[in-house]
Design a protein around this nucleic acid. Structure first.
Lengths: 136, 136
DNA sequence: TGTAGGGCTTCCCATCATGGGAAGGTCAAG
DNA sequence: CTTGACCTTCCCATGATGGGAAGCCCTACA
């Protein structure tokens, strides 16, 4: 299976497959006589694992750790859970941060006429001259 | 006021002030005889505006648009509101995406023993072999 | 007056994950 | 034999920020 087919089968672009190989996330693919990379079912399985981990927001570094644990039959599930819960905490922190922004923005947008006149509480807030809209 | 003081007064790092100047977000600062950048109260006000916009999650591109509107006395507040609501939508989309990840991850983590044994539903899900944990 | 320190300047590099594109080799079908 | 679709490597760009080096400038202090 050439890289294009492996990309199709795994949902990971050929570009990314080469990159993952370059950074050592996956082991270098075997080459055929024409120097083309070849992939088998196992490799595609690994690529799908990576794809899924990425879709759950894990970084490539975390993904690599998970990959190693996956391939380690003597792993302790606690190690996996640790990575997952740390990631959950990170996601929740970022969600809360963005929710704070949304809250403030919605308040400001609600107070803004959104018409052809220039007065605008959104700009007033940004300029720091407005009645302090709660930042939380 | 030198760049260090302006940084202190605005909360924007000197590094970033130079960068903002380089990309045309702010107008180049005047220079003194020794080639040092000089800033006045107005410039600091602009920097604080940028700082606040960034803290609400606006990109530098959006921030530039907001800055122009702020400085345009004949603006229509609708233009400002447009930018804000587009940004709110974007934030909410990203929040929803991350919440989906959290939901899936929490479910998986809940099902994972987190002990010294190797069996782990988190890895099973990533490997695609598990009972399909809802991706939503 | 010399020096030490801190601030300023520019320039280059790194991050993180991904895509775009060029230049050139290879293969299969028509 | 040509055409087109692959593949290869290499370089560049993204967005916003930080780190750090090399070198200039100014002030304070001995």
């Amino acid at each position: 299976m050439n890289i294009g087919e492996a990309a199709q089968a795994s949902g990971v672009s050929a570009k990314m497959i080469r990159y993952y190989e370059e950074i050592g996330l996956i082991t270098p693919a075997a080459r055929t006589g024409n120097n083309y990379r070849t992939y088998g079912g196992d490799q595609v399985h690994v690529l799908r694992f990576i794809k899924r981990a990425r879709s759950l927001g894990f970084s490539l570094e975390e993904t690599q750790a998970l990959l190693k644990l996956w391939q380690d039959r003597s792993r302790e599930s606690a190690a996996v859970k640790d990575i997952a819960t740390t990631h959950i905490d990170d996601l929740e922190r970022r969600i809360a941060e963005m929710q704070g922004m949304v809250k403030t923005l919605k308040h400001l947008a609600h107070c803004c006429g959104g018409n052809d006149r220039p007065d605008c509480p959104i700009l007033d807030d940004l300029a720091g001259s407005a009645s302090p809209a709660h930042t939380d």
